[in-house]
Design a protein around this nucleic acid. Structure first.
Length: 372
DNA sequence: CTCATCCC
């Protein structure tokens, strides 16, 4: 674990640590909900809790990407919840099927810590609790709930809610914008530090090309903007060229591929089949972590974002990537970039519009441009 | 004027 933990905590964080310590002695509820908004120091507490525990602690998250972020924060062997509780069987037509793995990792744990718990739906949440183990869930209730099944953990009241934004974050324009949106407010046009809110008419395309990640709401917009950004960069071939940005669409543990991770094309290899391309790609988000390129094979129709159903036998033999200049906020949940351009399509998400915008805003670590 | 995950 990391050693650079702060020696002092804010009063709210101290109280949270006490409440969790008491819960861990047992006799109470199976689940402890530690919720907190962006900038409230949830991560710090999660690390501390993990450090203090003597027993066998398992770390999990809904997506492979979120589990990877957990590992980077020092949570050893953090894995997907699926891999902790399920055994997979190859389905006839419908891809993999999951059955409870009663003797699997979750059955041996003394404590299970789940991060980004707003992503967990009711099916997975119920199956996780079926192991009867104490589960500490960390999450942000202002984030988007799962598409189906509802936010199993975040629909209930928290045991501890961290609301105090720590000092350096309180001055951060991104955190302030996120707070405004969470409280039901609207963003006003203007500049806020390095961040800004601009109208579509006054947007400079150069700014969009310059950012680390473009985020949108709808897949229709994502495809449109990916095409536009490729055009602006001078790419005419429908297949990727060297230097282009791709996003991975399916985990592959042995190859180190995470759904939602972004990559840069480093080299083109001869196509193995007329319907398939072969590329070397390097990770975009953590280039220091792993320099080595990964050799991938992708069906042309997957790159092109074809809606057609591809047989599972065919999908299993290939990797899944498409253009990653623009991503949906849903896809980006669990990821962060320094400079983000966010096209506000919150109107499309009705009752979840504030959560959509909040989730989009909090994907930016340093600067955000919101296009309204 | 809707979004999506999981495995080997």
């Amino acid at each position: 674990m990391t050693a650079d933990l702060p020696s002092a905590y804010a009063p709210q964080q101290e109280a949270a640590l006490k409440a969790i310590a008491k819960w861990m002695k047992g006799g109470g509820d199976q689940v402890f909900r530690l919720f907190g908004y962006a900038g409230t120091g949830k991560t710090t507490l999660a690390r501390r809790i993990a450090d203090d525990a003597d027993d066998l602690v398992l770390f999990g998250a809904f997506t492979g990407k979120a589990a990877s972020v957990m590992r980077q924060k020092g949570c050893h062997d953090a894995a997907t919840i699926h891999s902790l509780i399920y055994r997979t069987k190859e389905g006839d037509e419908g891809g993999p099927t999951f059955t409870l793995n009663r003797a699997g990792p979750a059955s041996k744990a003394d404590l299970i810590v789940i991060d980004e718990c707003s992503m967990v739906d009711s099916d997975l949440g119920n199956d996780l609790l079926a192991f009867g183990k104490p589960v500490l869930v960390l999450g942000d209730p202002a984030q988007l709930p799962p598409v189906r099944g509802g936010g199993f953990f975040t629909e209930a009241e928290p045991d501890v809610m961290l609301t105090e934004v720590h000092r350096q974050a309180a001055d951060d324009p991104i955190v302030r914008m996120a707070m405004t949106v969470r409280e039901g407010g609207r963003l006003s046009l203007g500049e806020f530090g390095e961040s800004r809110v601009v109208s579509r008419r006054t947007l400079d395309p150069a700014e969009v090309l310059d950012c680390d990640q473009v985020l949108v709401g709808m897949n229709k917009t994502r495809r449109l903007y990916n095409n536009r950004l490729r055009q602006l960069a001078g790419h005419t071939d429908p297949m990727p060229s060297i230097g282009e940005k791709l996003v991975c669409l399916r985990n592959d543990r042995t190859k180190g591929l995470l759904n939602g991770s972004t990559w840069t094309v480093q080299a083109l290899r001869p196509p193995p089949r007329p319907d398939t391309i072969r590329l070397d790609v390097v990770p975009e988000d953590d280039p220091a972590l792993r320099r080595r390129a990964v050799d991938i094979k992708v069906l042309r129709q997957v790159i092109e974002g074809s809606e057609e159903e591809i047989p599972f036998s065919m999908r299993r033999e290939t990797d899944e990537f498409t253009y990653g200049y623009a991503l949906t906020v849903h896809k980006a949940q669990g990821s962060q970039w320094d400079k983000v351009v966010l096209f506000d399509e919150s109107y499309a998400f009705r009752e979840h519009r504030a959560r959509w915008l909040y989730t989009g805003l909090t994907r930016a670590a340093r600067a955000i441009t919101v296009v309204v």
